[in-house]
């Protein structure tokens, strides 16, 4: 990982990621330190991640490859504050995402609203990360527009919503335009093709200008042309300074990235 290519974050990039200091941009922005994630199936323990390390700089476009079932999605979830590892820590801009190892009570927490870590994790999910899921995960009752808008609602309190509403709607419309779906705003997800759904999911992940875009096989279910369209979007984002971590099993797709990592036996290795 140490030989990762460096990429200078330009002025545009700084604007896109929310105007953090140029000093912070130089170091590793997103770091995973020795994360282990083990699934317990009855009495059998299935270790998926074994003390994996990763470090992504601000503005970097990293691709993760690996066999099916190697734990790519799991790693991305751990990075995105969605899944708590049993060991190790993830740091965003130097700030730990999960509670210290000894204080993790995986699956034991219920309405853990008062916990600082839970609150911080919610904040990170809301503001710092944008997640594109492997299987789109759109809300079937909502239209394309509403699917993106609802995440803006989550980010805005009830009281602030009336004032923030206009701006949020404009942002959503702009984001959907960027992914080329302006003509599908009032369609429901089940009326869209796979590529279109994927683009809605990308718009949803980007609408709030996340510091890090985490994309899980964004082209996995698509034909070559649709995949290329999506990769074009990613490259444009990357050019604008967006930090991206993408999981893929497609070498041509991975070639677009600054750096390609391989997940094998629960650990990451550069190629």
């Amino acid at each position: 990982m140490s030989d990762a290519r460096q990429r200078e974050a330009g002025a545009t990039a700084a604007a896109v990621v929310g105007g953090t200091s140029a000093d912070g941009a130089r170091g590793a922005f997103l770091r995973a330190e020795g994360v282990s994630r083990t699934y317990r199936l009855g009495r059998v323990e299935v270790p998926v991640l074994r003390r994996a390390d990763l470090s992504v700089r601000r503005g970097e476009f990293a691709a993760i490859m690996g066999k099916s079932g190697s734990g790519k999605s799991t790693l991305l979830h751990v990075l995105g504050a969605l899944d708590e590892p049993q060991e190790g820590q993830v740091l965003v801009d130097g700030e730990p995402v999960y509670a210290p190892v000894g204080r993790r009570s995986y699956r034991a927490r219920a309405l853990d609203v008062l916990s600082v870590h839970e609150r911080r994790r919610n904040r990170l999910r809301r503001n710092t990360f944008g997640f594109v899921f492997q299987f789109y995960h759109l809300l079937p009752e909502l239209t394309v527009f509403e699917n993106v808008l609802v995440t803006e609602m989550v980010r805005t309190g009830v009281l602030r919503w009336p004032t923030a509403r206009g701006e949020a709607r404009r942002r959503v419309a702009a984001e959907l335009e960027r992914v080329g779906l302006s003509h599908r705003l009032s369609h429901r997800p089940n009326e869209l093709s796979g590529g279109e759904r994927q683009r809605v999911a990308i718009a949803r992940a980007l609408v709030h200008r996340p510091s890090v875009l985490l994309a899980d096989e964004p082209t996995g279910n698509l034909d070559a042309t649709s995949g290329a369209a999506i990769m074009a979007i990613f490259q444009a984002l990357h050019a604008a300074g967006q930090t991206i971590v993408m999981v893929t099993h497609d070498a041509t797709v991975a070639a677009c990235a600054d750096r390609v990592l391989h997940l094998d036996d629960g650990r990451l290795a550069a190629k």
């Binding site: 839970e118 990170l124 999910r125 759109l138």
Partner: peptide
């Protein structure tokens, strides 16, 4: 359930979803 997962992944709190 899937919707709940999506909402939580974009930062909805447990109480909010409840």
């Amino acid at each position: 359930t899937r919707d709940v997962g999506v909402l939580k992944s974009v930062g909805a709190s447990s109480t909010g979803v409840g």
